[in-house]
Design a protein around this nucleic acid. Structure first.
Lengths: 192, 192
DNA sequence: CCTCGATTTGTACGTACGTACGATCGCCCC
DNA sequence: GGGGCGATCGTACGTACGTACAAATCGAGG
């Protein structure tokens, strides 16, 4: 394994264990087994390395979410949303480390274009893909309004629940509770 | 205004403009007009001050959300959810600064008990209140399952949309699009 | 086997940070 | 009006940070 990859892995580890700015260049060197000075050689600066590490970790989380949702889509048609929600909620505590890293990425995105721009693009693509997967359609077939509405809602729900899982995983709702809540909201207009 | 309050205000300003760890004790002193050494006197340490500032900013955001949702609840019964969603989405870009501060709070919560514990409690109370407001009921009358389900879903939706607004406010869905997405999700089980 | 470029290593420099501490101030109460 | 106490101020100390740079090492190509 090249020292460059070691550094990236070490930076991700530190990002999760210490957070973005608590991590020092010497922490990364120690966590990766690489030499302190190789950070500058391979990435130019410690911040550049941390930004790349944060983005990669966020992308990894996105991939895991996509895999969970896609797997649920293969289930029987009548219960797939319920199953998807159950598996999604169950997956969040397991993804804790990547969610922590993603939270760091979101927080730093406001101050570093290196993070904000790619993160914005990744989020947009994620919304389109999620909308497509929920509808069981190809991403290209999803019209813009649906992508914005359905994709945003599903994406927001996942991000929001993920952050809730960071604070208090025990208070996460079950898939059934989420589904019931969605029904309540959808029918709220007519109810009263 | 006491120097203590000045420091808190300056710390919030820095939290929004520079982020948690990019903010130095000297930044806070400059932003608040207070003296560098008064941080230690009033708060013990710079981190303690920043933690309190992050929590207060997060609480302010929670109050603004509560006000928006509560105001929408006073609208006519048949359209109140739609109106609430429209106003919620419209409010997010205006709340940008507080959302940035909240993102910092979430990111730091993983590494500082001072933040995580109160933030967890605030989030839980927020979920209960949101569930109650959506149902138009008193918070005490909401049973635990509903609070967990409906409260978590509404809270997650708001948090997720808020983070989306940080990255790309222009891509936020309208209230109508959100409502349509909720219908799609609620009926997904029966649809195919 | 030698060379040359790419990488890795060792180290040291300058800096900017958080905080401690003593001096000073301002105000209230005796 | 003076003594005492909480608040403010000025400053300096120690430290740990990021990075630059020269030396050392490695590895492939001639």
């Amino acid at each position: 394994m090249s020292q460059r990859e070691d550094l990236l892995a070490g930076a991700k580890k530190c990002l999760i264990e210490k957070g973005y700015h608590r991590t020092t260049a010497r922490d990364i060197a120690a966590a990766s087994g690489a030499h302190l000075a190789s950070i500058g050689y391979h990435f130019g600066s410690k911040d550049a390395l941390m930004n790349i590490a944060a983005l990669e970790a966020q992308a990894e989380w996105g991939d895991m979410i996509e895999a969970v949702v896609r797997a649920a889509g293969d289930a029987g048609p009548s219960q797939r949303l319920r199953i998807g929600l159950d598996e999604l909620v169950a997956a969040l505590p397991r993804q804790r480390e990547l969610i922590v890293a993603s939270a760091q990425a979101y927080a730093q995105a406001q101050f570093a274009d290196d993070i904000r721009v790619p993160l914005t693009e990744a989020a947009e693509e994620g919304r389109v893909q999620l909308a497509a997967m929920v509808l069981g359609a190809a991403a290209a077939d999803v019209d813009a309004g649906t992508a914005r509405g359905l994709g945003s809602v599903v994406h927001a729900l996942i991000v929001g629940l993920a952050f809730q899982s960071l604070l208090d995983p025990g208070s996460l709702p079950t898939g059934e509770q989420i589904l019931h809540a969605l029904h309540t909201l959808a029918h709220e207009e007519q109810n009263d």
